[in-house]
Computed example of a mutant assay.
Amino acid sequence: MDPDSSGLPRPLYDALHREAQGLMRRYDVSERTVVSLLHQSENTMFLVRDPARPEPVVLRVHSQNLSYHSAPSIASELMWMQALRRDAGVIAPEPIPARDGSLVQLLSAPDLDKPRHAVIFSFLTGAEPPPETLIDNFERLGEITARMHRHARAWTVPRTFTRHAWDFDAAIGAHPLWGRWQDGMGVDPEALKILTRLAGVLKRRLERIGTAREYFGLIHADMRVANILVENDVTKVIDFDDCGLCWYIYDLATALSFLEEEPTVPALIAAWLKGYRKVMPLQREIEDEIPTFIMLRRLLEVAWLGTRRHLEFAQGLGAGFTAGSCRLAQDYLRRFG
């Protein structure tokens, strides 16, 4: 990826790149190791190539914009990833320790905007599933998600484990982790009226569902297509950065991120549910509320885009995404409001 298209100010990118390259001294790699930009979204992802090793690895440098970018929270994310790899057969990146055995590093320099945590992971091969294979891949995705949920329900959480919750307040309420949806791109007075009504209905319905253990627990929380890699018949899961406590069915809503207006959504939901039920049942009362969780996610996306306007991805969607969200909200409110 071209650093100039990252959306970061060039001096900040240069400082991040320099510190990322310098971080290699803490790892068991050769002096010829080269760090280059792989992807920029919430976090900055670097590809790390060492001529002395057959495979590259991936360095994630956190934005530190989110409250769950603390060292204990990141370490907890890695605990669950390792447990899923070990106990549930989920193919996920493997965290790679530094020479001293530590998994979470800290980058700090006078010209960095703030100290940032960083983690190195194994590189997983595969590609994002193409649109024409989405339905088949959603069935596999539902099955993998159910295995993750089954593991989370039975897992003995380590004493030091700490992750945030994606409840109403943390998503779109009084204490939003991704920013206020009201500050989203294109939220004009008419959109504000529609989406405020939507938020009120969502709040009431979520309160009625409640957070009992059979409904609410540890989930990935960002199972969108961009975080799925497919290689032959094998599906792999990446980017556990947002994992936290939420309604289990929210993982389905995240799988539909930015696809909510596509005509294939009913077929995608049916395929996901088919795969999920191969592993474990889903309560009928929760299945009936799938549209509620899709709209919760959609409003959260409006908030995320509004606070990440510097990203090329966000700019490409722009105010039109909020207009689409209002159309979806009106359809939802006719049924549930």
Rank of each mutant, 00 (worst) to 15 (best):
D239Y: 02
P158A: 04
I238N: 04
E128F: 00
Q330F: 07
E207L: 14
T254H: 03
P3K: 04
E289D: 13
S108I: 09
F46G: 07
G320S: 14
Y248H: 08
I294V: 15
H310P: 00
V104K: 02
S5T: 13
E128Y: 00
A165I: 11
L192C: 06
L317G: 00
L202E: 10
L252F: 09
G275V: 06
G324W: 05
W272S: 07
I209T: 13
K236G: 02
H69T: 11
P51M: 11
P130M: 12
D2I: 00
G316M: 13
R208T: 11
G318S: 09
S102G: 14
H220C: 12
T33E: 04
I91N: 00
E312Y: 12
P51N: 11
D251L: 03
H62W: 05
I294Q: 13
E55Y: 10
P130A: 13
P115L: 04
V90G: 02
F258Y: 13
T264R: 14
L84C: 09
V279I: 15
L37Q: 08
F321K: 01
V104G: 05
D188L: 00
D241F: 06
D4M: 13
D222Y: 05
A191M: 09
E289I: 00
D183R: 12
I96A: 02
V230S: 06
A15N: 14
E42I: 07
Y13S: 09
A199P: 00
H220F: 10
A221Q: 02
T254W: 03
A314G: 01
F46W: 10
F321G: 00
V58D: 05
W247A: 08
C326E: 08
V58E: 04
E262D: 15
